[in-house]
Amino acid sequence: MFGYVRIFKPELKVREYEEYKAVYCTLCKTLGKEYGLVSRLLLSYDATFYILLRDCAADGTPQYKKGRCPFNPAKVCNYQTDCPESYRAAAALTVILAYHKARDNRRDSKGFKKAAAALACAFLRASYKKAAKRYPHFAEIAAASMEKQQVLEAAQCDSADRAADPSASALAALCTAHMPEGEQRRVTERIAYCVGRWVYLMDAYDDMEKDLKNGGYNPFLLQYGVTSSEKLRQDDVQQGVLRSLYMTENEAATTLALLSGGVRRSILENILCDGLNAKTAEIREKYQDTHAK
């Protein structure tokens, strides 16, 4: 996961924003408590999304306590005092995914970047082992998904749908791991699948230019047979890619209607209905701008 799943602040109510910040800060604190101060740097919006989706239907109002942020002592934050389990799970998830990403980078990149990734990997190993011991199920899901992804990449899979499936299924499995069978689980699974798929496709879209230059694996380049920078900016390619992204984000937004919940649900609505779209527009503009030059 790559930090694409964000709120769209202009459309957020103040109390929703405060709640979002509190979730974010509490996750940061939990990371620090469980995996050491440095692991707080791994904090991501994606793990925050995981907590929101997971606790969406939880009963009762969350309880908060004021505290100071260790990175910025002048700032007073709200920390949630109940419901620590989902934060612990999210912290473990953050560490596990960061470790896999570092390993992935170590395998794929060259030179200085490879060294940096190897260092990160070595650094994360102890935390990873701790997280994997606490949440063996998470580690299994993540490892299985990485393996499937590598097979697809090695086979130069030319279908974006298939290439996105391991990440999407992994997120769906991670988000529903603790849930009992039933409607709520099925709805959450569908939303998580769509978000996972969107993140993967978004990352591929964002990297098209870079992968074209370096010869890295990119499902969109293969699916549309893109071999040159001009072809990359042609309307049919851009529209095809955007269509995949829009279909995915709209499906996530439509499905959210079936999920019940309180304040957290409104934040999710903001993320799925506006946040994803804003991010897509941002990357789309990136391609249009360079085109104009």
């Binding site: 099925r186 569908r190 709209n250 439509t254 209607a257």
Partner: peptide
């Protein structure tokens, strides 16, 4: 929202 076409043809048609 509940009668969205894409829900009716998706896997969650019964929930909708």
């Amino acid at each position: 929202k509940y009668q969205e076409d894409s829900l009716a043809s998706g896997p969650l048609a019964d929930v909708a």
